[in-house]
Design a protein around this nucleic acid. Sequence first.
DNA 1: GCTAAAAGCTATTGATCGTAGCCAAGCGTG
DNA 2: CACGCTTGGCTACGATCAATAGCTTTTAGC
Lengths: 190, 190
Amino acid sequence: MPRAGLAPAAVTLAAADLADEISPAPLSMSLLAERLGVKGPSLYKHVDSLADLTRRIALLGATELGDALREAMQGLAGGDALAAAAQVVRTFVKEHPGRYAATVGITPTGPEDPLAIALERTLGSFAAVLRGYHLAPEHEIHAIRLLRSVVHGFATLEASNGFQMDTDVDESFAWTVAFVDRGLRGLSDE
Amino acid sequence: MPRAGLAPAAVTLAAADLADEISPAPLSMSLLAERLGVKGPSLYKHVDSLADLTRRIALLGATELGDALREAMQGLAGGDALAAAAQVVRTFVKEHPGRYAATVGITPTGPEDPLAIALERTLGSFAAVLRGYHLAPEHEIHAIRLLRSVVHGFATLEASNGFQMDTDVDESFAWTVAFVDRGLRGLSDE
DNA sequence: GCTAAAAGCTATTGATCGTAGCCAAGCGTG
DNA sequence: CACGCTTGGCTACGATCAATAGCTTTTAGC
């Protein structure tokens, strides 16, 4: 029996890709084993449990999303940064539904949890978007929550086919981003 | 063996309540059977499958949410109607996470599906909110999607503990509703 | 009261997660 | 080069769950 040459990172990556493919169906150990050309129990040499695997996928997803946000926002500010960040999240949810579901489906155990740190990084990108609007400090936390709500809500509704198809969703997305941009500009330095 | 006097509606109601209690854990037939004082296989006399049961919970939830929206919006318009509708959804997600998860986790099979009709009714309430703002017709569909995104996003993030606890979430919610109200008013008859 | 449908049950199948314990592959060290 | 030990695969098994088959009792309708 030749070895498959697996490592926890490789297993997690394959699991994340598989979860994206079969989403919204749940990932199973047997399915992942089959994908890796291995029998089910062998996976437990690399991950502790299905819950542990999901946690690793969540961390991977949060890290990738954070990286994508940073890269897309390079050199942008104001409405451009807002549009870029929103589009990144939307695209990520569409292309990586399994990863995204894992990240939102789990709560970090504490502030030391690597997952908490990765999520904090994505929050930092949203905060950076808002910095371009020069809001009064007491507005900032609420504005961040608004941003997250709009982007998360739009992306997940779209991904679950929550919008009827008769009107272009891209157009609605651009309209929504412009709506938020207008509102935030109205809040600037007052 | 005395009969438990069950009917599909009673089973669905108990299942929805149980799903709300154990959320975010998934509902299982065995758990529901135990709750009803019955053995697992007996449930199949009333529902076809777990998927069928979930579908029934979704329909129940969508209907209840639609009713709550209509009732809360009685006699209100503009910002008051917006605030009432948003609060209804937020409260519903918090108090009935199992029902809500079922409704968003399923896509209706067609326009004849009772679930589609129930969801359409809730959409109608959002449309009624917007009517108070007298938007240009080409804005309406986008504004509805914005509303749904904000409310759904905020409520689900809050329910999954997505917001850190250090700042009051009620305050953020009121701020968010006011933000949307301001934006919609800025769009009126232009 | 009789019949038949409805509603409970036990037994079983197949899928899944996870554990226990075995065995070979391949690395390091003498 | 050989020996051994860690590593990573395996088979076998137990527990839990969804779902089906088939039996029995309750209960409603005539």
